[in-house]
Design a binder for these strands. Structure first.
Length: 768
RNA sequence: GCGACCGUGGCGGAAUUGGCAUACGCGCCAGACUUAGGAUCUGGUCCCGCAAGGGGUGUCGGUUCAAGUCCGACCGGUCGCACCA
């Protein structure tokens, strides 16, 4: 029973965290009462920029802060009564843990799944540091306000794109929240299309990716990303100056604002032309920042008539617009005032030998035609990029590579792991663009493992998402320091049966974990390739309409509530608030309700006797056992709790405090209020733990009442109810219904056109 | 802009999936027990109406014997993605 481990912040667990962890713990305890062996571990995701920035702010070392924060978290976790196995806890910052994070890097490196390439990062010219995307606000450094630039650095990547197809296809076999599956699908972003070649007059060609090969006859110009490698080569003399200037401007902007900034189209002409493979015409080649180097081939064929962005660009720079699809009744010659992006049901025009073809099926025909002519092929393109795991920071696991002038990048031998993160005081990033670790010569220079010459360590540390991508495997095997995860343990406990966490990790964390499981499986280290069989996203607890965060000042600390009401009341209250998978706004208004409920149970435990249980109560008792079981299994905790309250109300009404019902109540309450239930269980005379019992069984035969109330409607409006024996036939109910005063008033003397009878529920008399 | 989800009493929220709308809890009102009540217990609590009855789940329309639930259009909100060719 896994829950996403927290980043141990200085503030401690807030109410939102506690809500999520309690919900997960309820499920774990419930599964134990079902007779399962449950492993419920908890640990700390303690590396990363968060901790580092906070440490810089308060002027302390993260290595000093983190253990302090962890101690506080541990205190809160014990207080909330989670059934955590503390013998198998972990922190990603522990060398005994990140040794294996580094080991995993080496396995990927050796398998050719890790490689280095130049990639842009956000760079603050004032603070002289690399910034994470979250640290850029409106194109400015969140700390000093300076305009952020891009810099290109050599960085490490994992080849997750090799697995794009499998990551997508496997999703259909997972028992996950639908919203999470959708988010993953969108992130992977599969597009079917074609890669086409536009020949350059001087030889060579420009390759583009398009999902609309059916519109190729309308491609009237091309656009390259400013970073495209062909740009320098094809730009003509008279355009060089403006192209260089444009490339410089784009490079000066940060990565975020380029993407989400204003949509005004900018760009310049390169002076070059390329040949449209369908029409044979020469079309101008431009560069513009709306074309991104990281998607497709970094170049597009522009079809302004049928694409919004291309249309805007053509308008602005007065480029030709050729319509190639018309729908019924449209005039192919009429000039377009806006792009025609919806082309379903249309037919091709201005498209040579394809004129008149159905637009919906033209795509495949044109791909085949271009394939035959050697100028294109059908391809599948993914939006997913390779995973950049490099961080030019201090607080993370050093990437275990040594650079040697003769041998190149050499992996650190496995027996030399971990590459320990040195405890340095000046961990603040500097203007070099590399991690502060590079300033420490005694650490930086090491002999090359292959030739013994002086080598240099890789100074980038790895992404925290790498730490968290495999932690579930480590939990089971924390006591082994000679292997990352023990094969027998792994076989027994993984893949994870139930995983609960926040939807903010629906994409990255879950995707990276899945990718890593696929690789580890392929390399023979584990025998499954999907790490989490069942995943459920919990809802978010918000306060005053927004997510709890320290900067908003709306963080609610649970300790004071537990002081005042007790941990169990607070747990019960959080689970009763609303649907676990939806979350909600935190108000403490109703907390006295769950408290009163527990007090009533406490009194009942004292008053319990062997009683005769009247039939209606007996039925409710058995129904409650089943309903609570079904609800908790589905994480519908709020309705499970109301069912329990209803049973208590029914007992009070019947003045029947039967010992067996009280005992069942205590067991069913125990996942929500473990301390309280344990105490009640002992008061009921038991000497072993309530968690060593089993969920009470129910008897379907006893669950049904002898009589039922049936609603009587006339023309769909309820006019009366009648009490009849269970499963009464229609004639009996109809006869009883016709006796009713209100029914007579509305139905007597009118022709009965129809009678609808739903057994045990409703009888509808339709009169004319 | 695209995608996903959601609009139900004064409030948090229920509704065996198309079958008595508002379960359960909070709050509020009245009463009981009390020197006392911010404890406990009992009863009441969607709106209009003395009643009979009528209206009612964001708005408008549709399907159906029957719609909170299904369909169409709109309004409002939350979250995710964001020039993805």
């Amino acid at each position: 029973n896994l829950m996403m481990f927290p980043y141990p912040s200085a503030e401690g667990l807030h109410v939102g965290n506690l809500f999520a962890f309690t919900g997960s713990d309820v499920h774990g305890r419930f599964r134990r009462l079902q007779g399962n062996q449950v492993f419920e571990p908890m640990g700390y995701d303690a590396f990363g920029i968060h901790s580092e920035n906070y440490a810089l702010k308060v002027g302390l070392h993260p290595a000093e802060l983190i253990p302090r924060n962890i101690a506080n978290f541990r205190r809160q976790f014990e207080r909330m009564g989670g059934m955590f196995d503390w013998r198998h806890s972990l922190s990603t910052t522990d060398p005994g843990y990140y040794k294996w994070t580094q080991w995993i890097f080496l396995q990927l490196f050796k398998a050719g799944k890790a490689y280095k390439k130049k990639a842009p990062v956000n760079w603050c010219p004032n603070d002289k540091t690399v910034l994470a995307n979250e640290q850029v606000e409106n194109g400015r450094c969140e700390r000093c306000g300076a305009v952020v630039e891009q810099r290109a650095l050599e960085q490490w990547f994992f080849r997750i794109t090799d697995y794009a197809g499998r990551l997508l296809d496997n999703l259909s076999g997972l028992d996950w929240s639908e919203t999470t599956l959708t988010a993953q699908r969108n992130w992977i972003g599969r597009s079917e299309g074609a890669e086409l070649e536009f020949a350059l007059p001087a030889g060579g060609s420009i390759r583009v990716f398009t999902t609309r090969p059916d519109t190729i006859f309308g491609a009237t110009f091309m656009v390259l990303a400013p970073e495209h490698p062909l740009v320098r080569q094809i730009t003509t003399g008279e355009c060089r100056h403006s192209v260089d200037e444009y490339v410089r401007q784009v490079g000066a902007r940060d990565l975020i604002s380029r993407k989400i900034g204003d949509r005004d189209k900018t760009g310049v002409f390169t002076g070059a032309y390329a040949r449209n493979p369908a029409t044979g015409e020469s079309i101008p080649v431009w560069i513009a920042d709306y074309v991104l180097m990281e998607y497709g081939t970094g170049a597009i064929m522009a079809v302004p008539a049928h694409d919004e962005r291309d249309f805007a660009f053509a308008r602005k720079f007065d480029l030709a617009v050729t319509r190639v699809i018309v729908t019924e009744g449209q005039d192919a010659a009429a000039p377009l005032t806006e792009p025609m992006t919806e082309t379903a049901g249309g037919r091709l025009v201005n498209s040579g030998l394809f004129n008149g073809h159905d637009a919906d099926t033209a795509r495949d025909k044109i791909i085949r035609w271009l394939e035959q002519r050697g100028t294109g092929k059908g391809v599948i393109q993914y939006r997913l990029h390779d995973w950049c795991i490099s961080r030019q920071r201090y607080w993370g696991p050093p990437i275990p590579i040594i650079y040697c002038d003769t041998c190149g990048p050499v992996p650190v031998p496995e027996q030399d792991l971990p590459v320990v993160l040195p405890n340095i005081d000046d961990f603040k990033p500097d203007d070099s663009g590399v991690s502060p670790l590079a300033r420490h010569e005694e650490w930086y220079y090491v002999p090359c493992p292959t030739c013994g010459a002086r080598g240099r360590r890789e100074t980038d540390v790895s992404d925290t998402f790498l730490d968290s991508a495999w932690y579930y495997l480590r939990y089971t095997s924390t006591e082994f320091d000679d292997r990352p995860f023990d094969p027998a343990r792994t076989r027994k406990w993984t893949p994870v049966t139930t995983y609960i966490g926040g939807n903010e990790h629906a994409v990255l964390h879950l995707l990276y974990s899945r990718f890593l499981a696929m690789v580890l499986h392929e390399l023979g280290h584990i025998d499954f390739d999907e790490p989490f069989t069942r995943f459920r996203a919990h809802g978010l607890i918000v306060k005053d309409g927004s997510k709890m965060s320290k900067s908003r000042g709306n963080v609610v600390i649970p300790d004071e509530y537990m002081d005042q009401w007790g941990a169990d009341t607070f747990r019960l209250y959080l689970m009763f608030l609303g649907p676990f998978q939806e979350g909600g706004d935190f108000r403490d208004a109703g907390i006295s309700g769950p408290r009163r409920f527990l007090e009533r149970i406490w009194l009942m435990v004292g008053e319990a006797v062997d009683a005769e249980v009247p039939k209606p109560l007996l039925a409710r008792w058995h129904r409650t056992k089943q309903k609570m079981h079904d609800d908790i299994a589905d994480l519908r905790y709020n309705t499970a709790i109301s069912a329990m309250m209803e049973l208590v109300n029914a007992m009070r009404e019947a003045s029947c405090i039967d010992r067996r019902i009280v005992a069942d109540l205590v067991v069913m309450l125990s996942p929500f209020a473990p301390h309280f239930a344990e105490e009640c269980w002992e008061r009921l005379g038991h000497t072993s733990s309530v968690f060593d019992t089993l969920w009470p069984t129910w008897d379907p035969a006893l669950m049904v009442d002898d009589t039922v109330e049936v609603a009587i409607q006339v023309n769909g409006k309820t006019r009366a109810t009648v009490t009849v024996s269970r499963d009464a036939v229609e004639a009996v109910v109809l006869a009883a219904a016709r006796e009713q005063e209100a029914v007579k008033r509305f139905a007597d003397g009118k022709e009965v056109r129809k009678v609808i009878y739903v057994a045990n529920r409703l009888l509808n008399i339709v009169v004319g």
